[in-house]
Amino acid sequence: MSERTAVIASRVGLHARPAGIFVAAVGELPIEVTIAMAGEPVDDAMDASSILSIMSLGASNGDTVVLRAEGDGADEALDSLVKILETDLDAE
């Protein structure tokens, strides 16, 4: 199991357009990725390819989230996702 933390950089938090960009990126990956707020139990982690899950997570600007994945290429995949979360997507 690979694990990464990321601090949400988008000013509006992780919803609207930034959530859409993130979900689209997860959807392109061949592996399953989960997302949870930092400190939440692993069992409560949600499917990162679901826009509705991401929106219900309610992560605001400055919140820390945890991404998890298993399998080949998990580390590289998570690194690329962290980069997306730590960019202010709403400003672009």
């Binding site: 609207a16 357009r17 859409g20 979900v23 689209a24 949600m46 499917d47 390819s49 679901s50 826009i51 509705l52 899950s53």
Partner: peptide
């Protein structure tokens, strides 16, 4: 356009 892109993602959302 943004509304349509977001709703397109929701239509086939794995959770839903």
């Amino acid at each position: 356009r943004e509304v349509l892109e977001a709703t397109a993602l929701m239509a086939n959302d794995p959770m839903l």
